[in-house]
Design a protein around this nucleic acid. Structure first.
Lengths: 192, 192
DNA sequence: CTTAATATTAGTATCAGGTACTAAATCCAA
DNA sequence: TTGGATTTAGTACCTGATACTAATATTAAG
């Protein structure tokens, strides 16, 4: 665990990396790892502008708490900027690095898909289940740091079945297209 | 903010609920909210077995830290139980309540999709981008609390393009089917 | 009304993991 | 060898707690 003989520069670089990888390290643990005093670690953190453990935990907790809430199901993926219930809607998703492959920076399809699906659901004013999807196409890979604009349109409604088209564009260029078939739950549930 | 005149039972019930909804409340904030002393809040937490703020933050942070890592991109969605690189693979996803609509308990399509996509990517041993998908079908709605078994198979490889079929079953019944077209990045990137 | 049990509050010591600050010691190079 | 950079030491203080003791309020029962 001990890493002796590092220069200040080297230590600080390594420290930054280490905290980035594991934000839950105390100054004490870090001081043991680098074999320097706690004060040195604190000076390093000051110089690097790295907040204390509790702040780091707080931001991880809060960040992922809301992220998981909005990302893991509760709400819409992306920001709903326009909505004409039952007809159409627009959402914007800022694709960040956490949604992309680390090496290539290409955004994982599941996030693009999730934006499209959640928008499709948002335009239907009911509890829905996805029962059939067809003709999904990813036209261009998307790299992180871009704003994705999704447009959804209800093209047909037959009973409790809704046919929704979603197109996602990146600076005027279409990167995704998908047709979703949604079934409203209220009625569907009783058929079960 | 003040909620006077609650019995111990009522206050503890409400306290539990309140902390569940917002785990980042200090004892002090809670004592103001319920208009009781900090000690009372602490006794209540003891009796209810609710850990202190920092423990709550830690568990939220750690839980979601690893969850976001496995859910928001880094790794595979679901557990990889079998893998024949370049040929086929099997993963199991325990669909929990956080992946489902609150009201209906129906699992959001994006998670099923994510399981399929990440398995498709896992069987290809390269950095890939999703460039075209077709023929996705959700055959049955899935309710939370079930084990989804995904099977992927590479059906064709042409240059840097891989065609992967993924089928997801729930107790022998097919609930999802999708064909993914993946492009290996190394070569594709240079064409850019 | 009084008493006993229950519930609540007060207060102290202690802890972890820090901040902020001062001062001393050590290193390293010209 | 001297001076600046670097590191370490030490103190006071902070937050949000635990653990514990003791006192006070409230409530129900006799």
């Amino acid at each position: 665990m001990v890493r002796k003989g590092l220069s200040k520069r080297e230590r600080q670089k390594s420290l930054e990396e280490k905290i980035r990888k594991d934000p839950f390290l105390t100054d004490e643990e870090l001081s043991e790892y680098f074999d320097v005093s706690i004060q040195t670690i604190r000076l390093d953190r000051m110089e690097l502008g790295i907040p204390e453990l509790r702040e780091r935990m707080r931001s991880v907790a809060e960040g992922t708490y809301t992220r998981v809430r909005s990302l893991a199901g509760k709400e819409i993926i992306g920001e709903l900027v326009d909505l004409d219930l039952g007809k159409k809607g627009i959402s914007i998703l800022e694709a960040d690095a956490s949604m992309a492959f680390e090496k290539t920076n290409v955004v994982r399809g599941q996030f693009i898909y999730a934006q499209a699906e959640s928008l499709a659901i948002a335009v239907i004013d009911a509890d829905v289940a996805l029962i059939g999807v067809a003709n999904i196409k990813y036209k261009q890979p998307v790299t992180a740091g871009q704003k994705l604009v999704a447009q959804a349109e209800v093209v047909r409604q037959r009973g409790n079945k809704y046919f929704v088209w979603v197109k996602i564009k990146l600076r005027m260029q279409e990167v995704f297209r998908g047709k979703f078939i949604l079934v409203a739950m209220d009625e569907w549930e009783k058929e079960e």
